[in-house]
Simulated scan of single mutants.
Amino acid sequence: MRIGLITAAPDHPLLAAAGALLTARGHRVEALDPRGPAGDGPLADVYLLKARTPAALALARSLEERGAPVVNPAAATELCQDRTAMAELARRAGLPFAPTRTADGPAALLALAEAGELALPLVVKSRHSRRHDLVARVDGLTRLRALAEQWPGEPVVAQPYLPSTGWDQKLWVVAGQLFCTRRRSELADPGHTAQPHGPAGFGPGDLPAERARLALRVGEVFGLDVYGVDLLDGPDEAVVVDVNAFPGIRGQAGAPEALAALALRAAAAGSRGSRPLPGPRTAAPADAGPGATAR
């Protein structure tokens, strides 16, 4: 089999480890830098779409149009880059996604807050997810005014700042196999430095069953095979604050093996002409619940 990696960093630990496993089994692994020309040579049996830049998405779409299977599909990957579309799809599917409001920029949020139409504290994020985008906690109008000056014209989403332990539960899924850890939230209060349940590790066996089911449901809704789900830590009902297509999944034993196995299954399915449809899977409408999106 020939496996293509759509990435500008083929030495990423997850890709490198999965690639080494595939190579050891006699398969050919090739990196395809999305910043360069795509070419029109023979297609690989499957492509792993790790990069999420516009150039990478365009390359993935062109490969799909030529009949190549891509994991994750370009349409599903692109949807996860738009936090407004992400929240709306999650709401329609009944996922407990954080309430999300879209605005043309921080200045528009400031006007709403000054008019008493937007409660603080809240979390402000760039609408379009990318490297070095805006993610900030806003406790008062002074901070919001500063963001309006620093990020003029930046489309944003706003979510209420929800109480938590100051840590996030990072869940990753590779073809239905679950991995997880806790990470301190970059938005947490300075005093929230200690692990909420001590320094012991946090793995799938420590994850409540309903949260594990939620993580798998996210993949079904968004049409993803390799993805991450960020949940607020704590005993309360789970709240999804972000979904990421093909995250790094660093330091998780078994993740490279799961990715290598997925690549081979997707390649075999593609050779039979029965690969997954490119794009999010349609979910039946459900009550909006706590994930309602305000526009």
Results as ranks from 00 to 15, higher is better:
Pro13Met: 13
Leu110Lys: 01
Arg182Gly: 00
Gly273Met: 02
Leu264Met: 12
Pro280Phe: 13
His128Arg: 15
Asp40Pro: 10
Asp104Ile: 01
Ala60Ser: 01
Ala255Cys: 08
Ser271Gln: 14
Ala103Gly: 06
Leu14Ala: 02
Ala103Lys: 07
Leu171Glu: 00
Asp133Ser: 14
Ala31His: 04
Gly116Phe: 00
Ala111His: 07
Phe246His: 04
Arg272His: 09
Lys50Gln: 14
Ala98Gln: 07
Gly234Ser: 01
Pro54Asn: 13
Asp33Ile: 03
Leu63Pro: 06
Gly219Ser: 14
Ala38Asn: 00
Gln252Tyr: 11
Ala253Gln: 05
Pro256Trp: 02
Leu22Met: 03
Pro278Val: 11
Ala215Cys: 15
Gly4Asp: 10
Glu257Tyr: 01
Ala294Val: 13
Val29Cys: 12
Ala74Tyr: 04
Ala58His: 05
Val221Ala: 15
Ile3Arg: 11
Ala136Val: 04
Leu63Thr: 03
Ala283Phe: 09
Ala200Ser: 14
Glu30Asn: 08
Gln177Ser: 07
Arg272Val: 08
Met1Leu: 12
Val221Phe: 15
His132Gln: 09
Pro208Asp: 11
Ala269Lys: 07
Ser164Thr: 02
Phe246Met: 12
Val229His: 07
Ala76Lys: 06
Ala260Ile: 05
Ala17Arg: 15
Thr181Val: 00
Thr84Leu: 14
Leu79Phe: 03
Ala292Phe: 08
Phe246Tyr: 10
Ala103Glu: 14
Asp139Val: 03
Ser185Val: 03
His27Arg: 08
Thr77Asp: 08
Ala148Glu: 07
Glu220Tyr: 11
Pro285Ser: 12
Ala24His: 04
Leu79Pro: 01
Ala269Met: 12
Arg275Ser: 15
Pro106Ile: 03
Ala294Leu: 15
Trp167His: 08
Val173Gln: 00
Arg52Ala: 05
Ala288Gly: 02
Ala74Arg: 05
Lys170Glu: 04
Ala85Asn: 00
Arg52Ile: 09
Arg295Gln: 09
Leu147Met: 09
Gly270Ser: 10
Glu78Tyr: 12
Ala258Ser: 09
Val226Lys: 15
His132Trp: 08
Leu49Asn: 07
Lys170Cys: 03
Asp230Gln: 15
Gln195Lys: 06
Ser164Met: 02
Pro10Arg: 13
Leu147Phe: 12
Arg217Pro: 03
Gly198Ile: 12
Glu210Trp: 09
Ala200Ile: 07
Gln169Phe: 00
Leu14His: 13
Arg250His: 14
Pro285Tyr: 14
Ala260Arg: 02
Leu214Pro: 03
Gly201Cys: 10
Thr293Gly: 11
Glu220Pro: 05
Leu259Pro: 06
Pro106Thr: 05
Thr23Trp: 00
Arg92Leu: 14
